[in-house]
Design a protein around this nucleic acid. Structure first.
Lengths: 128, 128
DNA sequence: ATAGAGGTTCCAGTGAGGGGAGACTTAAAT
DNA sequence: ATTTAAGTCTCCCCTCACTGGAACCTCTAT
């Protein structure tokens, strides 16, 4: 199957699928005329990567997960370690964003939001 | 004051301060020899931007906030609107990350994490 | 006089693609 | 059989907010 169908079947854009081939994440064949040719296995890998990306894994992490996926001799512990590191990273990010959100919310609440110039939000950013 | 001191006083890197000058976010003067010259007002603007960036605002948003900060005739409503839009964006991001975190956590919990190949995490990504 | 610290410009790269040009191939409609 | 439309190819520039480095210049201290 050609790239357009492979993209549709994996819920990725054609540009993204081409990018994944360019960076060696998947290796489609080539037709005589030079078109990339995707077989079922390769499309399945694309889908795998699309889902892992959706879970917040970087392309580099997807590469690692994909090689474990392809490795019959893998240990599930290796996969779990990657997932747990990602969960911890998500927790850190969540805590940071939450704190930001709360302080911004506090400051915004104190702002009258009228036609006057006085503004606690700007004051907070300008704080000496 | 020269760029190194301005950077130190605003908790930014020299590279960042130069970038902000290149993109017109702040406009330092120039000494005869060509060095950027930062006065107190300009350093204060750098500090303002550094804090706003720390709150998650993009440089473009900082530009907008900075122009309100400099505008004596501003209405605090304009600032509040920007802040509330950012809070809503943060809420959306938080909800998304939280959902991700929880599902990843559920899936990881189901993984034995041993030397066997069977892995619910990979299964989840490979799901048909 | 010279060493070193700090300044200048410009170029390249990051992650993960998106947009578009110009050339080519393929599939469908006439 | 021909034409047209859609799809694909490579290539290059753009994003965001910087960071790193090279080559060169200026200032200060010894």
């Amino acid at each position: 199957m050609k790239i357009g169908d492979a993209a549709a079947e994996s819920n990725l854009s054609v540009k993204t699928v081409r990018y994944y081939a360019d960076t060696g994440l998947v290796t489609p064949g080539r037709s005589e005329s030079g078109y990339r040719e995707y077989d079922a296995t390769t499309v399945q890998k694309l889908r795998f990567v699309a889902r892992a990306r959706g879970f917040g894994f970087s392309v580099a992490e997807c590469r690692e997960l994909l090689s474990l996926y392809e490795d019959d001799g893998r240990a599930s512990a290796d996969v779990k370690r990657i997932a747990e590191a990602k969960i911890e990273a998500l927790d850190r990010k969540l805590a940071e964003l939450h704190e930001l959100r709360d302080e911004l919310s506090r400051v915004a609440m104190a702002c009258a939001g009228d036609e006057r110039a006085q503004c606690p939000i700007l004051d907070r950013f300008a704080e000496i």
